[in-house]
């Protein structure tokens, strides 16, 4: 077996780049050819291909040859793993913000709110 980086590592590294996130956002709307992906990003074909290599290595997308076109498609599994890793953090802060809203709404808060201003 080939020694790869940890799967989650590859996912996060792939997602760290804004262009790759934009590509994923485009693919979240539906499959696209490499040419279609390159057009809105004003990028050269090789530049797009490089990004697609990273995304494919992270299992975020899959490519399929169809005639002379290469069709790209989102593979949400890796993204879901990254998301699952983050979920407890997200939940923590959402709850904390809920608590904070309640706390700030209390007229008898923990501290007196001064009103000069």
């Amino acid at each position: 077996m080939v020694r790869y980086q940890q799967p989650l590592d590859r996912t996060f590294i792939a997602l760290a780049d804004p262009t790759r996130r934009a590509i994923l956002a485009r693919l979240s709307l539906g499959q696209a050819t490499v040419g279609e992906l390159a057009a809105p990003f004003a990028m050269s074909w090789p530049a797009v291909t490089k990004h697609l290599d990273v995304l494919e290595g992270a299992r975020l997308i899959e490519r399929e040859r169809r005639g002379r076109e290469r069709l790209c498609r989102l593979r949400p599994v890796a993204l879901r793993e990254a998301d699952a890793w983050l979920e407890p953090f997200r939940q923590f802060w959402q709850d904390a913000f809920d608590n904070l809203a309640r706390h700030l709404a209390q007229p008898s808060g923990a501290t007196e709110e001064s009103e000069h201003g």
């Binding site: 989102l74 879901r80 990254a82």
Partner: peptide
């Protein structure tokens, strides 16, 4: 970084919403 692979962006939140909605399709493929 090696241990936990930091460095993905804020738009992950948006993408993950999409992921939740497409989970079943990918599951069927895999």
């Amino acid at each position: 970084r090696r241990a936990h692979a930091q460095g993905f962006g804020a738009s992950l939140d948006n993408l993950s919403q999409h992921v939740r909605s497409t989970t079943s399709r990918e599951g069927a493929k895999a």
